[in-house]
């Protein structure tokens, strides 16, 4: 089987991998690059667990081929904390207990960070619509929403 050679950037680091043309970016990130924080939920773009950013744009990595990542800048949950220093969103998720099993959490954090970069002061309605593509089957969504709103407020004060 002929493999495609891909050079891309993941969380600021240059990465190369060989992939099958049918292989999704999700599978490449997990199995070839070792980014196990990118989760597979539905695999059909409904649940958002595999959310990553590609050139700053929030996408489902299950709906993109690994081969399409050539020359792109990929952002995953692994790039969110600064060493041991958690990102404010991560810290607030712990404080608000905004997770149970944790499978949806990396995707929700990546999605929430993408929103706050675009709009540092979202309304709760804007936030709920933005995160509508991230499904959580454990907590319900209120704690997640409260954690993001709280983090956004702290980040606005800090900036």
């Amino acid at each position: 089987m002929s493999k495609i050679h891909v050079t891309t950037t993941v969380n600021g680091d240059e990465v190369e991998y060989l992939c099958d043309p049918r292989e999704t970016l999700l599978d490449c990130l997990r199995d070839r690059v070792g980014m196990m924080g990118v989760k597979e939920g539905c695999g059909t773009g409904d649940c958002g667990a595999c959310s990553v950013t590609v050139d700053g744009r929030l996408v489902c990595s299950c709906l993109m081929l690994g081969a399409e990542a050539e020359g792109k800048e990929i952002g995953t949950i692994e790039g969110m904390a600064d060493g041991d220093q958690l990102h404010p969103l991560q810290q607030k998720f712990i404080e608000h207990a905004a997770l149970q099993c944790g499978i949806c959490t990396p995707g929700i954090l990546v999605a929430a960070e993408a929103l706050l970069k675009k709009n540092p002061d979202p309304t709760e309605t804007e936030l709920r619509y933005w995160l509508a593509g991230n499904l959580c089957r454990c907590t319900g969504y209120d704690k997640i929403i409260r954690a993001v709103m709280d983090a956004a407020a702290d980040m606005r004060e800090a900036s």
């Binding site: 190369e16 991998y17 060989l18 992939c19 292989e23 490449c28 070839r32 070792g34």
Partner: peptide
């Protein structure tokens, strides 16, 4: 660095 860029690791792919 390109730790995934070897034929061995490529065989491990999830496709």
């Amino acid at each position: 660095a390109s730790f995934a860029n070897s034929k061995d690791s490529a065989k491990l792919g999830g496709c």
